[in-house]
Simulated assay, not measured.
Amino acid sequence: MSEPAPPTRLQSRAYAELRRLIVTGEFPPGTFLSERQLAVQFGMSKTPIHVALERLESEGFVTISAQQGIVVKGMSVDDIVDHYELREAIEAWVVRRMAGKLSAEQEAKLRENIVQQRAALEADDLVRLMHLDEQMHYLLCSFLNNREIISTMERLRDKIHQVILRVTDTDRTRPAESFEEHVGIVEAVCAGNGLLAADLMTAHLEAGKRRILNPERFSRR
């Protein structure tokens, strides 16, 4: 069986732009998409748009059907639970393993990330804060230098962004709480307390999951 042809430059551009619009929430779940309108918006033919949409469907970002057309897919309850269970298994294990083993450069990167998170929170720059949130989780996993874990976190990166965006939309008090949890995790890792770091990471991810699955509970706070 021959290998599929690599995507053309236009196909890659269409895919990257469509994925960005979905991940950032500019095309929220439930949005109906039109190949013709997207072709006009992106200034290209429908062919690269069609190829990009098929790729996004295979990755779970859109659904394409003869009945409904093309619709941006939201994360189901099962998707959210699966996402958090995978991250808890990986990230709690990572911080337990990395506690007390960071190089001076790695510790400095984590602490600088926390400084930048604080500044973004104080400036109410939630877009910047979400980016730094994702970066902190990725940094911790990348320090272990396990290629499979790094690959998994890279694959999850856009889903992580969608989850953080959804948590923030559900509960506007969550960013400040999440930041304080990040501080605790980083301090435990740097202090070499792996068990505490793992417990804090698990509690941090569980808190985010609860806010998505039980939004009414937190909207009355």
Rank of each mutant, 00 (worst) to 15 (best):
S2I: 07
E3W: 00
A5I: 10
T8C: 11
S12A: 12
A14R: 05
A16D: 11
R20S: 05
L21H: 06
V23M: 04
V23G: 10
V23D: 06
T24S: 10
E26Q: 13
P29I: 01
P29E: 05
S34I: 11
S34D: 03
L38P: 00
V40M: 07
F42P: 01
F42C: 03
S45I: 10
P48N: 12
E54F: 03
E57W: 01
E57A: 14
E59F: 05
G60Y: 06
I64V: 09
K73W: 03
K73Q: 14
V81M: 08
L86S: 14
R87Q: 14
R87W: 00
A89S: 13
L102G: 03
E105T: 13
E105M: 08
A108Y: 10
A108P: 01
R111W: 09
R111V: 11
E122C: 00
R128I: 06
L129D: 03
H131T: 07
D133G: 03
E134Q: 05
E134W: 04
L140V: 09
S142C: 12
R147Y: 10
E148G: 13
R157G: 00
K159H: 11
H161E: 13
V163L: 02
V167D: 02
V167C: 15
D169N: 14
R172L: 15
T173S: 14
E177N: 14
F179I: 00
E180T: 07
E181N: 09
V183K: 11
E187K: 04
A191C: 10
G194D: 06
L196R: 11
L196F: 00
L200H: 07
T202A: 10
A203M: 04
A207F: 10
R211Y: 08
R211P: 12
L213D: 08
N214F: 09
E216L: 15
E216V: 07
S219Q: 15
R221N: 08
